[in-house]
Write a protein that binds this DNA or RNA. Structure first.
Lengths: 141, 141
DNA sequence: TTTGCTGCAAATGCTTTGCATGTAG
DNA sequence: CTACATGCAAAGCATTTGCAGCAAA
């Protein structure tokens, strides 16, 4: 389990690391470092923001989490589940949804090939206004 | 010409704005604010970095330039030429190429529709290693 | 003249780091 | 006991902003 994941990453098993990994697992959302910080505070844990950044960066290096730089300053992290996907981000409420489209993936490879690029990674984010809950119909600039 | 573009944006025609717009036009590249700053310094102009950020932001608002947040801190700007395209970025040499793929565009719309998102914008960046000049074959992590 | 612009430096927001102390192995 | 972790506060980096002086219209 998590204990093992952390060891495999070559890191010592400590409370902050366990807690953070736990949070990333429970919230199958996309969390910023501050989000994690707030969640930890609420559950009474006293872990510094600096540590959270450090740990999340280590987890990223170890391939345990993914970091995304959507528009608007804060990076967000999600647990790496081994299933590639891209993102839809609501510019009104911040909601993030995931999707995967084989046709798009294939086209990207073709494009890279055509331009003689050896593809390493890609980032596809669709920004829009979602139609769920609070966001429904509320639209302005 | 540029004079008019600036007026149409509701801005006064000043030397800094003219110079910056000129640079964006000459270099059909993707420039960071600092790039613009360096170019201005070299040509003897004495324009503050703050002004460059301010002007580029105003140009962005006016639709004269586009701002991209590729990985790695600095935002880059390019002249808006009215032709939509996405980007290939070389993670070794920083080279940026543009492409446009109708199939991908269409798929994105379908995806947005399926998720009940009213699409406003999207960002597709393919990161890889280009095969041109300095970059050829040079590959490491 | 009036309104808007610029340079400068200080402020900001997110993230990283140095260091002394603490703790897993 | 030793190497690595943590908390804290300070530093870093890209970008924004306040303000007094300047310039376009």
């Amino acid at each position: 389990m998590n204990n093992q994941k952390i060891k495999n990453a070559g890191l010592k098993v400590t409370l902050p690391r366990l807690k953070i990994l736990e949070i990333m697992e429970k919230n199958n959302k996309h969390l910023s470092a501050e989000d994690v910080y707030r969640i930890l505070m609420k559950s009474g844990e006293d872990i510094g923001l600096g540590t959270i950044y450090r740990v999340l960066t280590q987890f990223e290096t170890a391939g345990l989490v993914l970091r995304h730089n959507f528009e608007g300053g804060q990076a967000v992290f999600e647990l790496e589940r081994g299933v590639h996907h891209d993102h839809l981000v609501c510019i009104k409420c911040g909601k993030v949804e995931e999707f995967m489209d084989d046709t798009i993936e294939k086209c990207q490879n073709k494009v890279a090939q055509k331009h003689h690029f050896k593809i390493k990674d890609h980032s596809l984010v669709i920004y829009g206004i979602c139609n769920n809950g609070d966001c429904k119909g509320i639209e302005d600039e």
